[in-house]
Amino acid sequence: MSFQLLETILLMTIVTYGSRVLPFLLFKGENIKGFARDFIELVPIALLAALVVPELVTPSGTIVIMNNPFLWAGILTFLFSRFVPNLFLGILFGMAVFWGLDKLLL
């Protein structure tokens, strides 16, 4: 195992376990409210956008619309999973469509 991966797993463990254990160690059971709570609740959806959209729109460093299997496979996967909300089927669909478009467009 590379040192980089070890470092990655270690850091991930510290921050994840830290988030889980701190309330057990520090609190009797209060509740976070207001800005902090909204912020924490909104992080996952913001991260999904930041992870996915740039990869779809700029797969090779510049914005590509037409000849871009990532973008079209992404849009089709989005539509598919709206009608079939199943993780596994959605991934299979996305991979198959991407593979097909990748062959077709290049």
Binding site: L11, S19, R20, P23, N31, I32, I40, E41, V43
Partner: peptide, 25 residues
Amino acid sequence: TPLMIGVTTLIVNIRHFLMSLSVVP
């Protein structure tokens, strides 16, 4: 880099803090 992944993991998983808080009682 590992640090980037660590920070990203923190902001993704900080939500566990909220869950933990509400289980503690």
